[in-house]
Write a protein that binds this DNA or RNA. Structure first.
Lengths: 141, 141
DNA sequence: GTGATTGCAAAAGGTTTGCAGGGAC
DNA sequence: GTCCCTGCAAACCTTTTGCAATCAC
């Protein structure tokens, strides 16, 4: 395992185990988001004995350390991703694809929100829109 | 049952049953949001035999008709509320209370989002922030 | 009268927990 | 060496589903 991936865990006081390191690697080396089950499948490729309960417990540890954030997108399942600046998620109702807006957009929205919500100290901002993505709109109209 | 509550169902082609009417009444007469279980408890006060599965099926019918929207707030459970203009939810990590910003704020944020997400046709916008509300911040600092 | 909806009960699905052995520090 | 973490299996909880009787239209 590359130190590049274990270092963040050490820094944050997360005990390093192969399970956690590979789960973190899967998350940190992609700007995508994954369900617990997707992570399980991916990491089992390198750690065949991995249990789904360990995935959940590792995600809890990583989230507690602030490395991972959990979201829910509409009626969909829990998804996990490496923490980054807040960015809106766009969920296509037709193809199910989830795309991200860049975090500049998230920052502007966060600014607008904070201006509106005086007295509330925002830690985490979650934004998602459901609708129809450009590709699917083309296809059907 | 007051026609005031049955009329929206009729208009939208939702077959009117006591179960649906009372569930809709509970939602429509509050600007709060409820879990399925909370609705169940409330409506059982007037319909003692009500089953939780009926609550879910009724909510599905009401949501399908556009009268109700479902949200998820962070790691919390599914919540349902009467449809209104999009409005950000602020979830306090300390006391768990969920407050709303007014929909003008939601509208402004929606405007900002649409400007950023060209090609994506937004149907539904969900925004929530987790953090610490003014009351809790006072208490602990 | 016909088809949708309900209550009931059972199933499903995702997530959590208890425990004993093994691993990180 | 100590305490934490993992695998395993079972439990849990919310949500969904099948079915026959009932109700809305």
């Amino acid at each position: 395992m590359d130190r590049h991936f274990t270092e963040p865990l050490r820094e944050r006081g997360v005990r390093i185990t192969p399970q956690r390191a590979f789960i973190w690697q899967a998350l940190a080396s992609s700007d995508d988001h994954f369900t617990a089950e997707e992570l399980w499948e991916r990491v089992r490729a390198v750690l065949p004995g991995l249990e789904i309960s360990t995935v959940y417990r590792s995600l809890e540890a990583l989230a507690g350390a602030g490395l991972v954030v959990e979201s829910r997108v509409g009626e969909g399942p829990r998804i996990f991703e490496a923490r980054s600046a807040p960015h809106p998620h766009l969920v296509c109702e037709k193809c199910g694809r989830i795309s991200h807006l860049d975090s500049a957009a998230g920052g502007r929205i966060l600014g607008a929100l904070e201006a509106e919500s005086e007295g509330f100290e925002t830690h985490e901002l979650h934004i998602f829109a459901t609708g129809v993505c450009a590709d699917c709109a083309e296809g059907t109209e």
